[in-house]
């Protein structure tokens, strides 16, 4: 089936299989490999994207469900060639090791800070509870979130 949707502000069309995930469509059909494919169960959050401004796991949404809706992926956060403040903070804090979880964490953090400019540590824990990192132990990630919040 052919679907039309908005991705990172641009109207897009894609030919998809009815049972195919939004994640697959983004990565394999629309050339946006920033959202990562890991657990495919909604457990790790590495495929986190915004659907109409709500944080979702793209692996659990069918591409067909996104028809007519607005998607923002990690590729859509930078503006005019400048990284998003959250991306800058992840770099500055060294909040990346293998990097596989990073796009999802960046999107989840951007979503948190869009709603809450002064997040407490518990707010951060709650907002990032659906994103797993197996390398860093989260300390540097928390540093990055606090740094990004301070820079906004």
């Amino acid at each position: 089936m052919r679907i039309e949707l908005s991705v990172n502000g641009e109207p897009c069309e894609a030919d998809v299989w009815e049972g195919e995930s939004l994640l697959y469509a983004l990565r394999e059909r629309l050339g946006l490999p920033g959202s990562k494919n890991a657990c495919e169960q909604g457990e790790c959050g590495s495929c986190s994207v915004l659907l109409d401004g709500k944080l979702v796991c793209a692996c659990l949404v069918l591409a067909a469900q996104a028809e007519g809706h607005e998607i923002v992926t990690v590729e859509g956060l930078a503006e005019d060639g400048r990284l998003h403040k959250v991306q800058e903070a992840f770099v500055a804090a060294g909040a990346v090791q293998c990097g596989f979880c990073t796009p999802g964490l960046v999107v989840a953090t951007a979503d948190l800070l869009a709603r809450n400019v002064y997040p407490s540590d518990d707010d951060i824990r709650e907002a990032l509870s659906g994103n797993l990192c197996r390398c860093t132990g989260y300390a540097k990630i928390f540093d990055a979130v606090r740094m990004a919040a301070a820079s906004l």
Binding site: G42, G45, K54, L55, V56, C57, L60, A108, S129, G130
Partner: peptide
């Protein structure tokens, strides 16, 4: 229940 991502949908 679940995570923010799952509760959204």
């Amino acid at each position: 229940a679940a995570s923010p991502q799952l509760r959204s949908m």
